[in-house]
Structures are given as structure tokens and as C-alpha cells.
Amino acid sequence: MRASPSIRGGQTSADRALAAFSVAGYAARRSQVLPEIDRGASRLSPYIRHSLVPLSRAWEHVADGPARDTRKFRDELLWQEYARHLYARVGVALHRNLRFAAPWAGEFEPQAWPHRMHCIDSVVSELETDGWLVNQTRMWLASQYTVRSGAGWHAGQEEFYRHLLDGSRAANLLGWQWTVGAGTGSAYGFARWQVEKRAPQLCRDCPLARACPIEQFPVGAAPVPVTDAPANLTHDPHLSDTQGPTDVVRRRAPRSVLLTVDSLGDADPALAAHPALPAAFVFDEPALARLRLSSKRLIFTVETLQDLARRREVVVYLGDPRVIVPDLDAAVTFAPVPSFARYAEGAAVLHPWPWLVPPHSGSVASFSAWRRASAGV
């Protein structure tokens, strides 16, 4: 079992990372890859993904920053919120390409990431070792895997999901679909000039420098529109289901607080509302057997629970949540993911999800369409 050498789990680590982050220079340097000291990415995404740093807290943290940098950082937070809205609405349909008939099925094809290419080898190594990548290199790998190699995007995103500490179905599935053209109609093309701009030393040290397979920008056919895209992509007839409860739902007196991977932080509404109750967490054994997550992801969760245990009682279970949860009489915070159903069924008290932007019934077919329909964004 190996932990990420650079990002550790826990509310204490999250608070420290947020306090150390200055948004100044973010807009210009967020996509820088090498040298690492010049990277401007916040590295907050693992803590945001697990709500150790809620989106609203990250939003307020940069309120006094330079206008251009604050605006760009907040745009990225809104992209995360958009991904959550989309996944909450369309559910498992997000596992297929929503807008275009780009290839998505098939087994993972490791040869689609040729390790003779230094830009690919170094990034895959960072993915597998650290469990975190800057957004620029995520796009490199996704484009190389799909647009250039022609492999099905879903298996590639599964490999990302196994390793990334910030791996979420919402953002991960959306990001890979965006790479192959969903929402834009144009695939993201990976080419040498991008490496030369963001990490020129990778090209200098590459054995293929004089015969670079990505020398030219990839040219492909326009994506073919999907005819059976989900009907609720442009209008939500069940907004209350997408949003979840807007008030606390009390079914019986709780004896514990149940945490989920989507909400592990001290600011979890159920946890904050019941400070005297023990916290519980269920490692979903059937899901873990299916997903085969890397040890980095599991250790991040364990570290987070260990950190919480310094402040209150924590009880950890291993098994099927549908069997374990009903006996916990737990208060739990709604999570906008399809898998939350296995926790909601047996919950004693259900707390609302702390949305940064309230869901709406308008179009979520693209980020821009979602944003236009979102009040005050």
C-alpha cells in the first residue's frame, strides 16, 4: 500500500493547503507543467472533491485576489459545480457520450499511452505515483488515448478514476467527454507545440524528439451527433430529485452521523448539526471489488478518517452499505450522485447538499448553456 507522496488526506491537511494557496498569478500559470516550481494550479482539487474544502469556502478564499485570477479560479469552481449538476440530473447516462457518437466502449488499452513518448511516460508516472495531475496534462493523456489512438474514452477515464485523488464520476466523465467533443462539437487535439509551451524539457529529453508522432495537430472527422441523448439534458422535469432535499428531513432520532466519500469534511452539514454523535463511514466492499482503486485513494480516505478521529469518535465499517446503514440510525448529508440511494434508504435524518449554485431546470447540454440559465452566475 502506497500513499501519495505529495497530497495527504484529512481536514488538517486541507486547511493547511487552502491557507497556503494564493490565487495571485493563477490565470497565467494554472496550466504550467514544468518546472514544477512554476506550476500555478492550486492542488486543492482532492480536498474539494471530498468536501474537505467546500466550493463555497474556496470561492470566498480568493475574494480579495487580483480580479483576473479570482475570476479564472472561480470559473474552475463553477465547472466543478456544473459537473455535479449534470451528473445529478442525468445519472448513469453520463457513462455514455451525451452528445456525439465518439467511441466510448472497450477495455483499457495501455498501448494507447506510448511510453517512448517522454511527455506521455512522465505524465502517466505522475498519475500513478502522486494521484494528481495539472489539468493540462490530463487533457494530453485523454486526447492521446482517444483522439490520436482511437481507444474508447470510457476505459481511459476508468484508469484516471482508479488513480486520481480527486477522481469523481461527475468531473471525470465530463472531462473525457469534453475531450472527444461533447458539448463543443470539436475534439481537443494534443500536439507537440503544447508540450513545448508548457514543459519544453520533456521534448528535449525525448528519444522521439526527431521523429515526434504528435508533431502536427491531429485532424479528424467531425463528431457524429447522438440521436438518443437524454431528454432531460435540455430540461429537467424532476428538479426536486436533482437538487435533493432543501430542508432537513427527520424520520427518527439519529444515533450516529454517516459520512460518504462525497462529504468527508468537518463542514459536512449532518456532522456539524450533530456534534455529540459518533461519525460512521462504510467502505463499500462490493464497489471496491469492482473499481479496484489504487492504494493512494484508499489511504487518502483512511488518513481523513484518522484526522477526524482526533476530534470525535469515528467508527469504520467494511461491507455492503445497504446492509449496514439501516442499523446505524444515522444522520447523513444528501450527495448528488446516483450511488447515494444506498445510503438514503436507511437514513434517520437527511440533510440538504450545500450547493454553490442552486440547480435549475434549464439546459445543461454545455457549460455555457448551464451558466446562462443559472441565476447570478
Rank of each mutant, 00 (worst) to 15 (best):
I7M: 01
G9Y: 02
Q11T: 07
T12N: 01
D15M: 03
R16Y: 04
Y26G: 04
L34Y: 02
A41P: 00
S45D: 14
S45T: 10
P46N: 05
Y47F: 14
I48E: 00
L52P: 03
L55N: 00
A58V: 04
A58D: 01
H61V: 05
R68S: 04
E76N: 14
E81D: 13
Y82P: 00
R89G: 00
H95I: 01
N97H: 06
A101Q: 07
Q111V: 08
Q111I: 01
P114W: 01
R116F: 04
H118T: 14
C119M: 10
S122A: 14
L127T: 05
D130P: 01
G131W: 09
W132F: 15
L133Q: 06
V134K: 00
R148W: 05
G150M: 13
G150K: 12
G152K: 06
G156A: 14
Q157S: 13
Y161M: 14
G167Y: 11
S168D: 13
S168Q: 15
N172L: 09
W176K: 07
T184K: 05
S186M: 06
G189V: 12
F190M: 15
A191I: 03
R192F: 03
W193M: 10
E196M: 10
K197S: 12
K197R: 15
R198F: 13
L202G: 03
P207M: 10
A211F: 07
P213N: 10
Q216F: 08
Q216P: 02
P223G: 13
V226W: 06
T227A: 15
P237R: 02
D241Q: 15
D241W: 09
G244P: 06
D247S: 15
V249F: 07
V249G: 08
R250S: 13
V261Q: 07
G265S: 12
A280S: 15
F283K: 04
D284V: 12
E285W: 04
E285H: 11
P286Q: 09
P286K: 11
L288Q: 12
S295Q: 11
L298A: 00
F300G: 02
T304D: 06
I324M: 02
D327R: 15
D329T: 07
A335L: 08
V337K: 03
P338F: 12
R342W: 00
A348H: 10
V349C: 14
L350S: 07
V357A: 11
S366W: 03
S366E: 01
S368I: 11
A369K: 09
W370E: 07
R371A: 15
A375R: 14
V377I: 11
